[in-house]
């Protein structure tokens, strides 16, 4: 079972940590706080879904540096950047590096909760997609080389006739392969198949 989405708070000011933790838990979300960027990195478990709220101005590793470190990880966690003194370039930079939101302290509590909710949904969505994709990858590995060739041509939009010509096999054989592919990938329609399978390189 996947753990419940958790909100991580990284801020060096104890009053901010405590008040954010109180705000987030008031809507029933689990929350964990950290006083420093390194402390969070040391404890970070990519398996736990959720999002992280990062203060910009912190001793040691700054919030923006932490953001860069997190962006380098294979599974990114959605980041909300909070700062008590924002500048436009800072906001642009943070968003460009993948922050889902950039908020100025003090910010409206409801707005922050809304952003948190969105971030958690985005994280859940991404995790589901990733899970799906890893399943699909496993299914694709189970295809025969011929079936794989047929699949690659289907997802780029080739009709059966063209596939048959290209591979030098009969249309009937293409149809059999296609049925096997759809069965192995557990999809019911070509549309679904196209959505799941990445385009061949």
């Amino acid at each position: 079972m996947t753990p419940k989405a958790t909100v991580f708070v990284v801020d060096d000011d104890p009053a901010i940590r405590h008040s954010l933790s109180e705000l987030i838990s008031s809507v029933g979300l689990p929350v964990k706080t950290y006083a420093a960027a390194q402390e969070f990195l040391d404890a970070y478990d990519p398996e736990v879904p959720g999002c992280v709220i990062i203060d910009v101005r912190m001793p040691g590793m700054s919030g923006l540096q932490l953001q860069e470190r997190l962006a380098d990880l294979p599974i990114g966690i959605p980041m909300i950047i909070l700062t008590a003194h924002a500048s436009v370039p800072m906001a642009v930079g943070a968003l460009r590096k993948g922050a889902v939101a950039f908020l100025e302290k003090p910010c409206n509590g409801q707005e922050l909760l809304d952003r948190i909710q969105e971030a958690i949904e985005q994280d859940g969505c991404r995790r589901r997609e990733q899970a799906e994709q890893s399943h699909v990858a496993a299914y694709i590995d189970a295809l025969t080389p011929r079936e794989r060739e047929v699949l690659d041509l289907i997802v780029v939009g080739k009709p059966n006739k063209a596939i048959a010509a290209k591979l030098g096999i009969s249309r009937r054989t293409v149809e059999v392969h296609r049925a096997h592919v759809m069965e192995k990938l557990q999809v019911d329609s070509i549309a679904e198949l196209v959505r799941l399978v990445p385009l061949p390189k």
Binding site: E22, S26, G109
Partner: peptide
């Protein structure tokens, strides 16, 4: 200044929610 103001705003919003 913004730090305590942010904390106040958070505590108030939390209390309203509860």
């Amino acid at each position: 200044l913004n730090q305590p103001l942010a904390a106040i705003s958070n505590y108030a919003a939390a209390s309203v929610n509860r």
